[in-house]
Structure formats: structure tokens, C-alpha cells
Nucleic acid binder design. Structure first.
Lengths: 214, 214
DNA sequence: GTCTATATTGCGATAGAC
DNA sequence: GTCTATCGCAATATAGAC
């Protein structure tokens, strides 16, 4: 994201506190995601950013807090890609669901998201509060976004859902199935564009129409 | 848990090799699941079982191999609870799916399975092969079991599924949704019997009938 | 046991914003 | 000029490796 501290830390112009904060977060994200929590040192982060370790402590409080800030930031950032409920949604339920599912699928298969997921599962036992903020900024936003869509369609009589939140969770669960787990566990590469599309079609079809022969 | 060691023709002093192996696995499971991989020492395992460290190395090879054996064993053991495809399946698709889903749901919400899942996600990066055996003995068996059921129903013209394996993955994904993730991350307790039933009903309903208004 | 790595803190110096 | 954030460096603490 931010500019790499070019040849040398520019003497003339000073970074804004905000820029420093962002640069620290970017460097920390990269290292945490690649090396894991324990294998990433404060020194390694600061080495990439320049300046003093003090900056991290005054901005974030400590290593755990830096990690937590990174998790929240990345979760939020990832979810920016989901389409907002818009007017078109009212018109074509199926197409809107496909749009939504594609966005979620892309996020789920993004290597950064995968690494983040692994990291959160690994470290949430040790860090109370980490899981909450991850869920709130990440998966929770996806679910609540879809929940609102389902509610609207249910109110319009287009869908028959009694518990929109639960239905949203099930829908997203279909997207985060074994194929996702296999990627998380590193036994297969993330699905490509084509496979993603194909799975999204099936999921939307099952969700809307079911598989029972009528 | 596994083989009962009572009827073993154990001499006064010596356990059968098989019983020793089982006892080591049981002790290791408990410690690994509760304390994690790094926080469990070979000494701690041996302390519970008695005997010498040598036993672990001759039976399993080393700490990682013991861990891998435990993961494979627990995965396999957990999956024993899923109902085999039987004759009744042919009769009532819906009831059979509910049975199947209930079994899977119970497994997913079992604290041991939850701990195992966390552990596998945490350690699979470090241990090549761990993820494969976990998937093969655990989730893979669930998926393949359901896949066979779906194939039969599809062949009988009861269901309209073109890719039974993918459909099975989506079905199980609905059961392993955000509510499961929240339990894995420790932000909520496992769903109780009642909530499990309720979710299973919804999942089967969505899967068979869909939510679109006809 | 020693020793190394690393998280954390203390504090005077300094550079830029105002 | 003052003021604040940051820097640079050093010191402390501690957990884990060996």
C-alpha cells in the first residue's frame, strides 16, 4: 500500500502520524500473514518501516494490540468488496445472489484471507477479543449484509425464509465448504475463476430451488 | 475409548504392545487437545502412561508422528458415528438426510472435534501430511458417505443432483457455518441439542426444497 | 544451569508544524 | 520560539533454546 521508504528515510519531510500508522500496519500484515505471530518480531516490522520501535508502542500499545489491529483492519478491508444492497436487488433475486456469492467466494479464496483465517484460528485461543473483532468486521458483515437482502426479499414475498440470519449463515456455509477447508489446510490451491463461478451457480441453485425432484 | 484393555491376556507386569499403544494415544489426545502441540511434552505423556519415553519413539517415531497418529485416530473415531447408507435410505430421503445431518452436527459440535479442528488448522502449516490424513479420515469420509447417498437417490430419480460430491460438500458446508466457526473461535458454546435439531431441519429444508417461492 | 532472542520501557535529542 | 511526535539508543525482563 504505502510507499516503501525509498532509498533512505526522507529527512526533509516527515511522515504524518497517520501515514506512519498505516505503514506499520502494512508491514505488520505482510509479516504476520507470511511468518505467523510468533515468528514475526517487532524489530522485523520496524526494520521495514524505519524509525523507532517506540512508534509501535505509542500507536498500538504492544505486539498483541498491533496484531489485533491488523486482523480488524484486514477483515474490514476484505469485506469492502461485497456489493451493497441496491435497487437492482429488488428486481432479480437470482442475479443478485450470484453477485453476492461471487464476491464472497473471491474473498474466501484470496490467499491473504486464507492466511488471515489460519492465523485467527491459531491465535484466538491465546488472545481474548481477537475472535470477536475478526468475526464482527469480517464474517459478521458478510452475514448481516446477506441477511438484509434476504429480509427484503422475504418481505416482498419473493423468498420463503423465516429466519433470514440463519439462512444467510447456511448460504455462506455452502460457499465455505470442504473446498475452502482444503485450501486453508494447504492441500490444494485456491479455486480459479472458473471453478468459483461453477460452484457459485450450484450454491445459488440449491439455495433457491433445492435438489428434490418436484 | 478404543480397544478395551481388560480382556487382554496381560501378564502380571507387562501390557500388551497394543494396549500400551492405545494408552499412549489416549493420553496424548487428552494433552494435545487441551494444551496444544507445543505445550505438550513427551515427558508429560509418558508420565500419564508409565513406562519409558522409548515406548513412544518405538511405537510412533517421534512427537510429530505421535501427533499425526492421534489426529488420524480421532478423526476416524469421530466419523464412526455417521450412519451407513442402508435400505431405509431408499424409502425416505428427507428422514435419512436429517439422520445424517444430525450425526454430522453432533460431531461438529463435540468439544473434542472442535479442539481437533483448531489444532489441525494451527499445525498443518508446519507438518506436511497432517492435513491430508485429517481430511481423509475425517471430513472426507463424511463427504464421501453423503456422496454415495446422493448418488443413489439421484439414480432412483428422487433427487436432481448432477455433481453429488459437490452437492455433498455444500450440504455439509451449511452445517459447518458461522455458528461452527464461532464455536471454534471460542466466542460461543457448542449448540445444544435443541438448536442443533432446529438448524438441521432448516438445512435439510433448504437443500431439498430451496427458499424460492414457487 | 547458561545464553540468546525479543518484548517492553525510559529518556534525552531532534525535526518539523504552528 | 514552543510543542509534539518521533527518533535513537540503551536498559530491563523473561521466556525458550541448548
Amino acid at each position: 500500500m504505502a510507499l516503501p521508504s525509498d532509498p533512505a528515510p526522507a529527512k526533509r519531510t516527515r511522515r504524518s502520524p497517520d501515514a506512519l500508522r498505516t505503514q506499520i500496519l502494512d508491514a505488520a500484515s505482510e509479516l504476520f500473514l507470511r511468518e505467523g505471530y510468533a515468528n514475526t518480531s517487532i524489530d522485523a516490522v520496524i526494520e521495514r518501516v524505519g524509525g523507532s520501535k517506540r512508534a509501535i508502542y505509542s500507536h498500538f500499545g504492544g505486539k498483541e494490540d498491533l496484531f489485533a489491529a491488523m486482523v480488524a483492519g484486514l477483515s474490514e478491508q476484505a469485506l469492502e468488496a461485497i456489493p451493497e444492497a441496491n435497487e437492482r436487488a429488488e428486481e432479480d433475486v437470482r442475479a443478485s445472489l450470484v453477485d453476492f456469492a461471487r464476491a464472497i467466494m473471491r474473498i474466501l479464496m484470496d490467499p491473504r484471507t486464507i492466511a488471515l483465517y489460519r492465523l485467527v484460528v491459531s491465535e484466538s485461543g491465546r488472545m481474548p477479543g481477537l475472535a470477536e473483532s475478526f468475526l464482527r468486521y469480517g464474517p459478521g458483515r458478510a452475514t448481516s449484509g446477506l441477511t438484509r437482502l434476504l429480509e427484503r426479499w422475504a418481505n416482498s414475498g419473493l423468498l420463503d425464509v423465516h429466519d433470514p440470519k440463519q439462512a444467510a449463515e447456511h448460504f455462506i456455509g455452502m460457499l465455505r465448504d470442504d473446498s475452502h477447508l482444503e485450501v486453508v489446510l494447504g492441500v490444494r490451491k485456491p479455486l480459479g475463476e472458473r471453478a468459483q463461478r461453477s460452484r457459485v451457480e450450484r450454491v445459488v441453485h440449491i439455495f433457491l430451488d433445492g435438489v428434490a425432484v418436484k
